[in-house]
């Protein structure tokens, strides 16, 4: 890997607040170290902006190691940039070439209003989780490791669903801004396990109702979400959500 530095043109969405119509601003950034992450590159841009007396670009981030799901950026029309199974914080500048123009936009969904610049409000996801309700577990001592039998394949699939970090890339990438992949992961991880059975029916109905209320779109089964998901959640969970929903609709009290 050569250590050659990159010169980039950045087209960044700037928006002063939720009511501001917003606009693209173009910045020139030289001497970008190819080993930097995408977020570190934005840090460098912000230092440059602060030095020249401009407002830094607001963007979300937290863990910077691919687990918190905060770093929500649309990079050249791709959620989290060009790589599969990668969050923006895990994307490195060596993926780009000197002279590239990079367009950076916030997630676009009516349910994710822009707060400022590249930061969107994803609390709609939190309300969907809340609408799913609680899980009944006994308090007291931790149960014996093998007291509740769960087949290995079921465990694995439930864990795959639980890998969702709630970043919203599925919504961002979907042509309908649908939240089906997110909701299906959250429904699946509990519906498959014995611990999730007590509230199984109520959970799926509550989450789907809330998903609609937040203004997400319907699912066209285009599978763009699966390709964009940094946690590689499969659309087979959407099929499971649909099954859970039919079951709940036919049996709910």
């Amino acid at each position: 890997m050569s250590g050659e530095h990159l010169s980039l043109t950045l087209r960044v969405w700037r928006q002063d607040g939720p009511e501001d119509p917003g606009r693209f601003e173009t910045y020139q950034l030289d001497n970008v170290n190819p080993h930097m992450s995408f977020l570190e590159m934005l840090d460098v841009l912000n230092e440059q902006l602060i030095e020249s007396g401009d407002e830094p670009v607001e963007f979300d981030h937290d863990c910077r190691e691919g687990i918190c799901g905060m770093c929500s950026l649309m990079i050249n029309g791709q959620a989290h940039g060009p790589d599969r199974a990668t969050t923006t914080c895990q994307l490195h500048m060596r993926r780009f070439r000197s002279g590239d123009t990079i367009t950076i936009e916030p997630w676009r969904a009516s349910a994710f209003p822009v707060v400022r610049d590249l930061v969107v409000d994803r609390s709609a996801f939190d309300r969907i989780i809340q609408a799913g309700g609680y899980v009944s577990v006994n308090t007291g001592n931790a149960p014996d490791g093998n007291a509740i039998p769960v087949p290995g394949t079921v465990q694995e699939t439930a864990m795959d669903a639980a890998a969702c970090i709630g970043c919203g890339a599925c919504v961002a990438a979907c042509k309908n801004a649908s939240a089906m992949l997110f909701v299906s992961a959250k429904v699946s991880q509990l519906a498959m396990l014995p611990q999730g059975q007590a509230e199984r029916t109520r959970r799926v109905l509550g989450m789907v109702t809330q998903m609609d209320e937040e203004g997400f779109g319907a699912c066209t089964n285009t599978s763009e979400c699966e390709a964009a998901c940094p946690a590689e959640i499969s659309v087979s969970h959407i099929a499971r959500l649909n099954r859970e929903y039919v079951r709940a609709a036919l049996t709910a009290g």
Partner: peptide, 14 residues
């Protein structure tokens, strides 16, 4: 309704 504001640039990972 779910996407009133469209992207300036949109690409696919499929």
């Amino acid at each position: 309704q779910a996407r009133r504001h469209r992207y300036a640039e949109k690409d696919s990972k499929q």
